[in-house]
């Protein structure tokens, strides 16, 4: 948010007429502000609701600010909310998600960056064909591959475990990350690569000594992409894990949409915010890089 003004934009030349309150500006900013408020509304409602007590919520108006701020719903969501028979709150799901996300991100980026590097600089016969299949894999609905992967995981004894889910995330992260790294490494000046070759550096030498140090930004983009993607995943979590190992999103859904018991809307909203907090924090910190990540993911090179 605090980013400096975008670089690389065309510089306006000459003098511009200054009309701060022209009709055009009022319209322009008016529309933008109204839309911005609409976009912020759900976040506001979430925060406000999670800080109210249940009696206050029953009075109505979800938009009114809390008369009496209480953090009890947050505590309850974190450590007491029930899913089925387990009443240890979202904390379990949180730590499961951490234990899923961290290794998945590290593993998928390590593999994909080397793959991307091989595809960009060390093409071999057939490499483009495999890459094409990989990219098509990104578009295939996951539902088609769900069950074969269940069988694979069962065969290697990882079905229902966190490691199994890590493997799944690594597999499904590969298309987009490989594309990202391939395009990045392909944009590195070829002279650099050739000079290193002349000096006798091999595949791994060039990767670790030249490519890796100069590609920090793309690694950050990849980390952002993967952390938010894996943290927000629901489908793989619900298919490949058991209640003990449910990631946070699955547990959150079970807490909020459970049919038993009295609905505690404030606890539900607190749980929802806590789940959304990790990607939100990453988003607000990373700013431009997040945008670059989705643009890189979206636009082919």
């Amino acid at each position: 948010m605090a980013d400096p003004v975008a670089a690389g934009r065309a510089e306006p030349r000459g003098t511009r007429p200054r009309r701060a309150l022209s009709r055009r500006n009022v319209m322009l900013y008016g529309v933008l502000i109204v839309v911005a408020l609409y976009y912020l509304l759900p976040l506001y409602v979430m925060v406000v609701t999670s800080l109210k007590g249940m009696p206050e919520i029953r009075l109505g108006n979800i938009f009114s600010p809390p008369m009496e701020i209480t953090f009890e719903p947050w505590v309850k969501a974190w450590s007491e909310a029930c899913t089925g028979l387990n009443c240890d709150g979202l904390s379990r799901g949180f730590w499961n998600s951490v234990r899923i996300t961290v290794p998945s991100v590290v593993l998928s980026i390590a593999i994909a960056s080397v793959n991307g590097y091989a595809l960009a600089n060390w093409r071999f016969r057939g490499s483009e064909v495999f890459f094409a299949i990989l990219i098509f894999g990104a578009f295939i609905p996951y539902q088609v591959m769900l069950y074969p992967i269940v069988i694979m995981l069962r065969e290697i004894g990882l079905y229902g475990t966190l490691s199994g889910l890590v493997l799944v995330h690594t597999i499904f992260g590969m298309p987009i990350l490989t594309l990202l790294f391939r395009n990045y490494f392909a944009s590195v000046p070829e002279e650099l690569f050739k000079a290193a070759r002349v000096d006798g550096a091999g595949f791994w030498g060039i990767y670790f000594k030249i490519m890796l140090p100069m590609s920090l930004p793309i690694f950050v983009v990849a980390i952002i992409l993967q952390v938010t993607g894996i943290w927000n995943d629901f489908l793989f979590g619900v298919v490949y894990t058991k209640p003990d190992t449910y990631p946070m999103t699955v547990q959150l859904n079970n807490i909020v949409n459970s049919v038993q018991g009295v609905k505690e809307y404030n606890v539900n909203m607190a749980a929802t915010i806590i789940t959304g907090l990790v990607p939100l924090v990453i988003y607000f910190i990373s700013g431009k890089l997040f945008v670059r990540g989705i643009a890189a993911g979206a636009v082919k090179g």
């Binding site: 839309v35 911005a36 976009y39 912020l40 759900p42 976040l43 938010t228 943290w231 927000n232 995943d233 629901f234 999103t249 959150l252 859904n253 929802t272 789940t275 959304g276 990607p279 939100l280 990453i282 988003y283 607000f284 997040f290 945008v291 989705i294």
Partner: peptide, 12 residues
């Protein structure tokens, strides 16, 4: 502001 919902999961 316009993009932040995209960082949130569909569940949230």
């Amino acid at each position: 502001i316009f993009l932040y919902p995209f960082a949130l999961s569909f569940i949230v």
